[in-house]
C-alpha cells in the first residue's frame, strides 16, 4: 500500500500529473532540501581513524628509528644512489623510447619480415620477467667471455673481456632499455594508429615525403595519445631500476641494501628509499602535465590560440570574391 501511494511513475500517477500540469499544490518558491547521506561522514571518520592508528603505530614502533631515517635521508651513499637511479631512468627511458619508435614503425610497415621481427621482439621481451633479463645481461660474461670481432683473412680486429665492457651499469641500461622498448613500442604504435588515415593522405597530397609526413603530421598528433601512458612508463621505470640491485647496480635501492645488510636497520632504510622514490615520482608528474597541456592545445575547443573577437563571424560567412559569380 505504502509503495503504491509513493510511486509517482506508475501509470495512473503519470496521468494525474499530466492533468495537473503546473501542479497547483507546489508553492512557487518552495525551498529545496538536498538528499542527506548520513553514512558518508561516518565512513570518512572511520577511514581517518584507521589511518591515524596506522601512523601512530608506525611512529611509536621502536624499529622505526626516526633518527636513523633522518641520518640516512641525505647521506652521501643515499644521494649517490638517487643520482644513479635518475641517470638509469633517464638513459633507459630515452633509449627505450627511440627503440620503441623504430619497433612501432617496423610493426606497422608493409614488409611482413620487418613486422614479424618487431612482433617477435615484443613477444620475447614482454613475455619474460625483467628480473630474468637483468640477470641475463649482468652475467653475459659467463657464456660469452670475450667480445671480439675477427674477419676471415684479416684476423682479430679487437677482443675484450665481456665483463670489462658490460659493467653492471651497462648491463642495467641494456636490460632496462631493451625491455622498455618492447612496452613503449605498443604505446607508440597505438598512438600512430590513432591518427586518421586522411591526415597522411592530405600530407602526401601537398607533396610531403613519407618521412616529412611522419615528422610533421603523424608524430605531433600521435604524441597526444602517447604521453599519458608514457608518463606511467617513466614512473614504472623509476621504480623498476630498484631491481638492478640483483646485479650490483649501485642505484638507490642497491646502496641502501648494502647498508642495511651490515647495520640491520632494514625498516628505517626502506623508509628512506620509499621517501626518495615518492619524491622523485611526485616531481615527475610536473613535466607530464605540462606536456599534456602543450600537445593537447589544438583540441581545446573553447579558445583560438591568439584571442580574436568572434564578431567576425558574420563577415566570414561569405567568400570575399562572391561578386565574381557567373
Amino acid at each position: 500500500m505504502e509503495i503504491e501511494r509513493s510511486s509517482v511513475f506508475s501509470q495512473p500517477a503519470l496521468k494525474q500529473n499530466a492533468r495537473l500540469a503546473a501542479g497547483p499544490n507546489v508553492p512557487d518558491d518552495a525551498p529545496l532540501v538536498p538528499r542527506r547521506r548520513p553514512w558518508m561522514p561516518v565512513a570518512a571518520a572511520a577511514c581517518v581513524a584507521v589511518l591515524a592508528f596506522a601512523l601512530w603505530k608506525l611512529l611509536e614502533n621502536p624499529v622505526v628509528d626516526q633518527d636513523v631515517i633522518l641520518e640516512y635521508l641525505f647521506k652521501d651513499v643515499t644521494l649517490r644512489g638517487v643520482g644513479v637511479t635518475l641517470f638509469l631512468t633517464t638513459v633507459s627511458m630515452a633509449a627505450g623510447l627511440a627503440g620503441a619508435v623504430v619497433l612501432a614503425m617496423m610493426h606497422l610497415s608493409d614488409n611482413s619480415v620487418l613486422s614479424g621481427i618487431a612482433r617477435l621482439y615484443t613477444w620475447l621481451f614482454r613475455g619474460t620477467p625483467i628480473l630474468v633479463q637483468l640477470i641475463f645481461w649482468g652475467y653475459l660474461g659467463i657464456f660469452i667471455p670475450e667480445l671480439s670481432l675477427s674477419l676471415p683473412g684479416i684476423g682479430t680486429i679487437f677482443s675484450v673481456p665481456t665483463a670489462q665492457v658490460v659493467t653492471p651499469m651497462v648491463a642495467a641500461m641494456l636490460a632496462l632499455s631493451l625491455n622498455e622498448a618492447a612496452y613503449s613500442a605498443e604505446i607508440v604504435r597505438s598512438g600512430i594508429l590513432s591518427v586518421p588515415r586522411g591526415q597522411v593522405e592530405a600530407a602526401r597530397s601537398v607533396g610531403m615525403t613519407r618521412f616529412r609526413t611522419f615528422r610533421r603530421v603523424v608524430m605531433p598528433q600521435a604524441i597526444r595519445v602517447i604521453i599519458p601512458p608514457m608518463g606511467n612508463e617513466v614512473i614504472l621505470m623509476l621504480k623498476t631500476t630498484s631491481l638492478v640491485s640483483v646485479i650490483a647496480g649501485a642505484d638507490l635501492m642497491t646502496n641502501l641494501q648494502h647498508v642495511y645488510s651490515q647495520t640491520f636497520q632494514v625498516i628505517p632504510l626502506l623508509i628512506v628509499a620509499s621517501i626518495w622514490y615518492l619524491f622523485m615520482v611526485s616531481i615527475l608528474t610536473i613535466p607530464q602535465s605540462w606536456l599534456e597541456r602543450r600537445f593537447g592545445q589544438s583540441l581545446a575547443r573553447s579558445q583560438p590560440r591568439r584571442r580574436k573577437s568572434r564578431s567576425s563571424d558574420s563577415k566570414a560567412g561569405k567568400p570575399a570574391l562572391s561578386d565574381k559569380r557567373g
Binding site: 589544438s298 590560440r305 567576425s312 566570414a316 561569405k318 567568400p319 570575399a320 570574391l321
Partner: peptide, 16 residues
Amino acid sequence: LDLVGLADWADHYPSQ
C-alpha cells in the same frame, strides 16, 4: 584566406 572568406580565422584550430 581572404579569397575563401576566412581572413579572420587564421589562428583557429580545425576543431574550432
